[in-house]
Write a protein that binds this DNA or RNA. Structure first.
Lengths: 269, 269
DNA sequence: ACCAATGGTTCAAATAATGAACCGATAAGA
DNA sequence: TCTTATCGGTTCATTATTTGAACCATTGGT
């Protein structure tokens, strides 16, 4: 592993649960000598990727991310387009919608939108990280990932977020073909209790899966008819986002249902 | 310079004007051998700090910034608090407000807010970069920066954004003491024609200047009374932001005007 | 007063970065 | 069509950087 990769890997130890990390602790977490850790953090700090809240104290993520994220979004407005789509999807389904991107072996929340009209809804968090095995989005992504990647992910210890999280690698692996036939993954209470969600994968320019769109409802509200409606809309939205970002679904990806109200029937014969 | 710094320095060549950079071009820009550049870009890409739009093509900033910026904002909600303050400042002054952070030797836009009630206003851009010598914000920051930093900045060739940009280092240097006595910097048409702006510095925990708050109006709208009002409000806002972020103004920093309507006069005597 | 942490530093030994030359592919010009 | 000049990417002996055990100085808890 190159030195730069080592330095960047330090950034991944920051999380919502642990926003501040000291030198010694970082050294331990990363398994890197304290002197080296110190130098690497120093170089990251020079660029503003980390900062010390006070000299001789803990480190945290730095302000450079704000600048570069704004620039990235300016060049490639993923969040903006995702958010616009999620808003209409939330309107169409009347439920909370969510889009996440694959980053390493987890998903990170890109955007989400709430729907009006219900007293209860599924709440989302900014900067939330989703595990691949415990969420509908994760399963959707996993189903369309290369076999080697799937093996890699499933070989690790799978933690149970809730009592209903499936943690048996073989059970999960066995569920993937079904996802591939429909293009839709489901999770009932796997990540949060009382949340029922459907997700569909989004693909990049090389047809690799880069993330997923999901719709989440309280379990008590989900019915067969609502599920059918959601599945149709989430699949269509995911395809729309794939196209909007210049991506291509793999050739085997299921075609979306034709709209219930056919605009023109002449070509069907 | 360490390897990591070298790799990170590549990121600074991406800009709004040049969002895509090829391998050879990056190698030339950075003055780094092509093989090394390739390896460094590869490591950055592994972490998602850059990505190739298609394999064997140009590079651009990567999606990891979205994730880490969200996490940073979650931990240290600078943009959010800045935006809230800018909104009230825009209300108070009736003009466009703006906050930027010092990053290296330039300012980068953190947030801005527009005011209601006017047919014309000063327009802001996301991810915009402001030079220190040509903007009121930049001058405010420069006035409160260490002498060595000032020398460094002023020793470089200063480009004229408009016909009214001051580019003589000594003229600029001579204007700094005046800024330090009032805590306010002014720019008339220095960055954009027809823009008149006032700015005040914001300080970090170690009393170092980290950025500036500014109010910008069309030149035609600025009057003496409006200027007085704006200067008072922008100074108060900058101090408020400094405190809100846990920073401290340097001891020599001017105290804000007492509010025009004194709440209590007993202590004055 | 003590101990065990912390952040930070030193310097010879080990390791990773470097860069000129090279390859195959693509595109433009003659 | 042939030539030339790019491009992205790779190779490998030389070189410079990174590494890590041991070392401070400080801090905070017992």
């Amino acid at each position: 592993m190159g030195t730069t990769s080592k330095a960047l890997s330090l950034l991944d130890f920051f999380s919502r649960a642990q926003p501040l990390i000291g030198l010694s602790q970082m050294s331990r977490l990363a398994g890197i000598n304290k002197a080296s850790t110190h130098r690497l953090l120093g170089e990251l700090a020079d660029f503003g990727l980390v900062e010390q809240v006070t000299p001789g104290r803990e480190y945290r993520l730095g302000p450079a991310f704000l600048r570069l994220a704004a620039l990235r979004e300016q060049n490639v407005p993923m969040r903006e387009t995702a958010y616009a789509l999620l808003e209409t999807l939330a309107d169409e389904t009347g439920e909370t919608t969510h889009m996440s991107l694959l980053q390493g072996e987890v998903l990170s929340t890109l955007a989400y939108a709430y729907a009006d009209g219900h007293g209860t809804l599924v709440r989302m968090e900014d900067a939330e990280v989703l595990s691949l095995h415990a969420t509908s989005s994760g399963l959707a992504v996993l189903a369309y990932s290369p076999p080697g990647f799937i093996d890699e992910v499933l070989s690790k210890r799978l933690t149970a977020r809730t009592s209903q999280t499936k943690t048996d690698p073989e059970v999960i692996r066995a569920s993937l073909p079904q996802i591939r036939t429909t293009g839709i993954a489901v999770s009932i209470g796997g990540f949060e209790e009382d949340v029922h969600s459907y997700a569909a994968p989004v693909f990049g320019a090389n047809s690799a899966c880069i993330g997923a769109v999901a719709v989440a409802t309280p379990v008590s509200r989900m019915t067969d008819t609502l599920a059918t409606h959601i599945k149709g809309r989430v699949l269509a939205s995911a395809l729309q986002l794939t196209r909007g970002w210049g991506g291509f679904p793999p050739s085997a990806f299921p075609k979306p249902e034709p709209e219930p109200i056919p605009h023109q029937s002449s070509k069907r014969a």
